[in-house]
Amino acid sequence: MNIQQSPNFKASDYKSGLTPVWCPGCGDFHVLLSVTKALAELGTPPENVAVISGIGCSSRIPAYTNCYGFHGVHGRSLALGAGLKVARPDLTVMVMSGDGDGFSIGGNHFLHACRRNVDMTYIVMDNRVYGMTKGQPSPTTEPDWDSALSPGGTGLSPFHPLVIALASGANFVAREFSGDIKGSTRTIVEAVRHPGFSFVEILSPCVTFRPDERQWKTQTHAASVEATDDPARAARRIMTDDGFNVGVLYRGRRKPYETHVSDLAGDPAILEEEFAV
């Protein structure tokens, strides 16, 4: 066999040997596949990638990769990721979360991560339900979705992640459907390459508590408009969105958060001068 150019990495190189605990049919399997394919496409060695998460079904993902991972506490993955990226700018940092973890308990961090614009990628697997705790409504759940905790539905307006990301200053905003492996892979690659904070919402069905979401496979469709770098245009589009447009909405040009960490450390003795009387 004469392979003209040997690829550095295959998608399977980014997968660990652990079998996920996710229910068969769960969209998160697709997301894991898309992420590993995207990393293969990017060609970043697995040891130079960190996958950071919080709590929930989606947040189990780091251990299923062969990258460095951190499965932290509920809602704080973006803070873990930002600290890591600022301290280690050489790493590719991907923060992965779910709609409960990312938008409810972690909602404030989401706003400020968008603002701060640290160069990392934030993927939220949105299934509009808390799965790990047996099916409670999340911030993206429809108001009339019935559950034991909120009988008859919450009656609350769902949270609109893309609108909020855009309004908060995220530098790259996209939505994908988990089952569209190619589209998701392509968008994740672009999100990682895009400077600053990139946000990708991936609609990822929960087949156990939201079997109706299997329909997303036919409901999602490619957005009919091209991505824009004009936040005003992006905002107008997203406000009339049906929730099932997939693709890149916005590519911003904001300067990423900058620090200048260096191992060529100055001698702390220089800090003592100010104290001498």
């Binding site: 950071i52 951190f70 932290g72 506490v73 809602g75 704080r76 973006l78 803070a79 873990l80 990721g81 930002a82 600290g83 890591l84 990226k85 600022v86 301290a87 280690r88 404030n108 961090h109 706003l111 400020h112 701060r116 620090t259 200048h260 960490v261 260096s262 191992d263 060529l264 450390a265 100055g266 001698d267 702390p268 220089i270 800090l271």
Partner: peptide, 22 residues
Amino acid sequence: RVGGALVQAEDELASINMAIGA
């Protein structure tokens, strides 16, 4: 001055998690 960095966080939940991440 010694090659490090300080990040202002949005709250204490974030600040300690940033420190852990770093």
